[in-house]
């Protein structure tokens, strides 16, 4: 049981990076960016092919980051320069990335078994796999949160936050909203690609299909985090994303333990997200009922 728990935490920490990426587009930029489904695989594909060629695993993660930045750039250009709606821009890049990822890997999947990965450093010290993933996860998540906390407090970061809030006002303040949208999408997908690279190394393979449903998992984690852990200031919001991602993994682990077939997992996730997104609507339905009940009292 403890191992299941630790496994969920380690996986949750890696998915926390995806969650932060999804948060940047979905909450800060107010764009549902489906590029994520492709850029997570791209990160995995780049890291896996780099590692099998003997490149340092940390350098491989860096290369994955650059790949993710480029994926975000493409979506951003499609949306801002070619005026394609954001949802469709993301879908186009996602589909294009499927072919590109196959080209990067040269085949549908790459095994990383017995390769030197980012986790090997700690595994050599005698820490088991889950422990090593947790350590690496905490280091990466900590650095990313630190950098983002700083970045979104800077002039450029403030401009990106304002763009999702009110682009008209942002332009009136002399800021090019095309640039801020592209920057936001790049950072988001860069982070997702880092997550992809780390996830591939922790599960010891990269697969061209591994991105399916990742946007939904990211959204689920964002929402769980907001509902359970609040959203007072930016730092607590970032922390809530991490806790949300871990909670999601623990829920999934428990549900599987209770006997739900693994094949139903995506259905379960989709239903959870749909319910969570519909909560405000449910509440507005309940309000009149509650009021009338009070009157009866």
């Amino acid at each position: 049981m403890l191992q299941i728990f630790l496994g969920a935490i380690s996986l949750g920490l890696l998915w926390a990076i995806v969650t932060i990426g999804v948060y940047i587009t979905y909450r800060i930029l107010d764009i549902a960016d489906l590029t994520v489904e492709g850029s997570i695989v791209m990160g995995a594909a780049i890291a896996a092919s780099a590692i099998t060629r003997g490149i340092n695993p940390y350098a491989a993660v860096g290369m994955a980051f650059v790949g993710g930045l480029l994926a975000g750039l493409i979506t951003g250009l499609l949306h801002t320069k070619l005026k394609i709606p954001p949802l469709l821009s993301g879908i186009l890049t996602m589909i294009a990335l499927y072919s590109i990822n196959l080209r990067i890997m040269g085949k549908a999947n790459i095994s990383l078994l017995r390769m030197h990965t980012t986790y090997s450093t700690f595994e050599k010290l005698g820490i088991n796999h889950n422990g090593s993933v947790i350590i690496v996860g905490i280091i990466f998540v900590g650095c990313i949160i630190g950098v983002l906390y700083w970045f979104f407090g800077t002039e450029i970061g403030c401009a990106i936050r304002a763009t999702g809030d009110n682009p008209q006002m942002v332009r009136a303040q002399g800021i090019n909203t095309n640039t801020t949208i592209i920057l936001g999408l790049m950072i988001s997908n860069g982070l997702v690609a880092i997550a992809g690279a780390l996830i591939a190394q922790s599960q010891s393979f990269a697969d061209v299909q591994m991105g399916i449903g990742s946007i939904v998992i990211g959204l689920a984690s964002v929402i769980i985090g907001e509902v359970l852990f609040g959203k007072r200031n930016f730092f607590s919001r970032l922390m809530s994303l991490v806790l949300g991602a871990i909670t999601y993994r623990i829920i999934i682990a428990l549900v599987l333990k209770l006997g739900m077939p693994a094949n139903d997992l995506k259905l379960f996730t989709a239903i959870t997200v749909a319910i969570a997104l519909a909560l405000p609507v449910f509440r507005s339905y309940l309000k009149p009922i509650k009021k009338s009940m009070k009157k009866v009292d």
Binding site: T154, I156, A162, D165, N166, V170, G174
Partner: peptide
Amino acid sequence: AANMGIEENLALAYRRGQRRSLTWG
């Protein structure tokens, strides 16, 4: 910008026409 603070809105306006940098907002 509705989701940003009064001071954050003012800070955005204070830099109107300037190139935004990576210094504090």
